[in-house]
Design a binder for these strands. Structure first.
Lengths: 237, 237
DNA sequence: ATTTGTGAATGGGTTCACAGCA
DNA sequence: TGCTGTGAACCCATTCACAAAT
């Protein structure tokens, strides 16, 4: 489940205080979810709380850390040291939470050898060697979208079986490889979608054909609109 | 729906070629989803394709752009110019896709006045004025977790009704405000969770109490484990 | 013949409600 | 009495399958 990490964070907060035990209701409040959901999640995880009391914070922390693989560090390999890759390499949030940046990789020979923080950028052809050095690791794709699939393939070929994709492109991987995707612009577009919904577009409404246009109402919009559109929209990235 | 932006991306790719029309199947393949899902999504959106032919690419683009609010730029206000905020400010992916960075804001007086790219960091107290200048805009929270809720409150008070939260903390907003959350470390933890699942932990398995421990088997693990744990886990962020 | 649009079936996750236990 | 664990009901998204349209 995608909520476990949030529970873990909340538990760490609680553990910092003296509190030895926590109820599902309190944990739910901290994690911003429903109490029943917390119980279902934790029971599915196999952990046992004590009825009438709650969950033992320390014990729960142990179980969850183990399940989440937080008892050890997982090095990440960042592929693509452009703007975003550079940022991620410097981002403390990764190493602080058990995911130290183990290597930086780029396909551009001009970038290879450049120093970023404590690491030196290496060439993407070295991936197999790097994976062998670091052991089990997570690949982070921060390349332009056009290169994403190729990079993912190379990561998989090198033995990486967990990939986090920041490139705005759909990439396919074998079924035994875990893939997650974060598209920052998509997040913003979703927000602007809801924003759009809130304000009933005044001048736009007039230009829009009725959603259920009857056959005879085969309006001219489809032919007129694209011209205006071409100006408004940026080229595909 | 969260898939619309992906469709939009695919459509832009298609539009770059001469292709005037596209089938749901092809679009589904490009977006990495099921064909029926594409049709449901598009029909729910109100757009009409032509049976036996497919969807008119340009027309569909127009409709989707309108729905997603892509016909205009939405400026974003980045709050918190630390490592991540700095990175996001320089990230081309935002402005390239219609979300120009309109302002950088920080609470640290030492940072105010500092120049990042073409922008100068302003103080967080100026938020209301900034929102008034930019008009409808999206707030991006890139602060430490402890400050996230306060920042969100200030954004809302200043009139922002769409917030993208990068801080690893649960923040609450009024129901009329859209909130999305991106936690980079959580993404990695989810990956490490599945990775953990794949490899049946060899030495760990021995140390773990049976999930269904009987009353009499009230093992000592709960009391022993936390000690080891305290060393392994980092402090709550 | 091809492809959309959509009712119906399916499945998974969420919530409810309460039995079971401390 | 208080809180967990969990079956049952519920809800929503996905998928299937096919009629309708070109």
């Amino acid at each position: 489940m995608a909520r476990l990490p949030v529970y873990l964070r909340s538990l760490l907060e609680v553990a910092a205080t003296d509190t030895p035990t926590i109820s599902s209701e309190r944990l739910a409040e901290m994690a911003g979810v429903n109490a029943a959901k917390v119980r279902k999640d934790l029971s599915y995880l196999g952990s046992y709380g004590t009825r009438g009391v709650g969950y033992d914070v320390e014990y729960l922390l142990f179980q969850m850390s183990r399940e989440l693989g937080c008892t050890q560090d997982w090095p990440v390999i960042i592929v693509g040291v452009g703007n975003l890759g550079h940022a991620l390499a410097n981002y403390r949030g990764f190493s602080d939470r058990g995911f130290p940046v183990g290597a930086l990789v780029d396909a551009d020979p001009a970038k290879v050898g450049e120093r970023v923080g404590e690491l030196v950028i290496r060439h993407i052809d070295e991936l197999p060697a790097i994976v062998a050095e670091l052991g089990t690791s997570i690949g982070v794709v921060a390349t332009p979208p056009a290169a994403a699939q190729d990079v993912a393939d190379r990561l998989v070929a090198a033995g990486v079986c967990s990939i986090l994709n920041f490139a705005p492109a759909v990439v396919a991987v074998p079924p035994d490889v875990s893939l997650r995707k974060v598209d920052l612009a998509v997040e913003l577009q979703i927000l602007s979608f809801y924003q759009q919904r809130r304000s009933p577009g005044s001048m736009v409404a007039a230009a829009v054909p009725p959603p259920l246009a009857e056959p005879q109402a085969d309006v001219l919009v489809p032919t007129v609109v694209p011209a205006t559109l071409a100006v408004t929209l940026e080229a595909p990235s």
